[in-house]
Amino acid sequence: MHVVVCVKQIPDPAEPGQLDPGTKTLKRSGKLILDESDSYGVEMALQLVDAAGGGEVSLVSMAPGSETSGLRTALAMGAAGAILVSDPGLQGTSALGTAKVLAKAIGRKNPDLILTATESSDGYTGTVPVQLAELLGLPSVSFAKSVEITDGVLHINRQTESGFDEVTCPLPAVVSVTAGVVEPRYPSFKGIMAAKAKPVEELTLADLEIDADDVGWAGGGQEITDIVAAEAREAGEIIEDEGEAHLKVVSFLENLKVI
């Protein structure tokens, strides 16, 4: 069983984001980290390979500046190796462009299963997984909250508005997993040390034979035309509870005539 997990490396969400008014992209500073949303896919992949009695989990990531910090975290969890696509020509790449790059990189691997998160924490388009599946000519199941494989067939509980659907799908396939599907393991000290020696193959657009016009700003098919501050909501009255604050809520509701 060979599982590829697409992992995004993103700016630390704990640091407030800012848009660069010049390039109109997210300002990036410092190291990128593993998107927490993708740690679920990594954990899921490790468990599926275990359950299958053997195989390999490998990673694919597209990131600027030869960034590997986030990949190392996933390698420390137990993935065997990674492909990193990094190229100055990728700046400004849209979701579809990203899917094109990931599809080419995955094409080198020929996996049984490709896992992604349902949406990235910083871009949250949520379209990359399905675009990727279409480009690879594969079926996809999005919003998986549980994944099992028996006799080469996926059994998935897929989130729906009213509950969930039990879905089956033959391999190979692309599956996007929701947060909370599994409990991502913390990398052990041994894992962290081992990760340093694991192979990360770095590829450029030329290596993947991708036309520069298909990606980057040029290939995006979109242009940011305006960035404005949204109408701010003002904070109202804030009171400290000294035993009677619930009465404030009661009179607030009374004033609105809902009680």
């Binding site: 979701a95 579809l96 388009t125 379209t127 399905v130 279409e134 999005s142 897929r158």
Partner: peptide, 24 residues
């Protein structure tokens, strides 16, 4: 709409027609 099926349809369609999707 940004729904489960809406995202699936939009993503597939975008790759088929080779056009981007504006999201959110």
């Amino acid at each position: 709409g940004t729904t489960y099926d809406g995202r699936d349809v939009a993503g597939r369609l975008s790759a088929k027609l080779d056009v981007p999707v504006l999201t959110n």
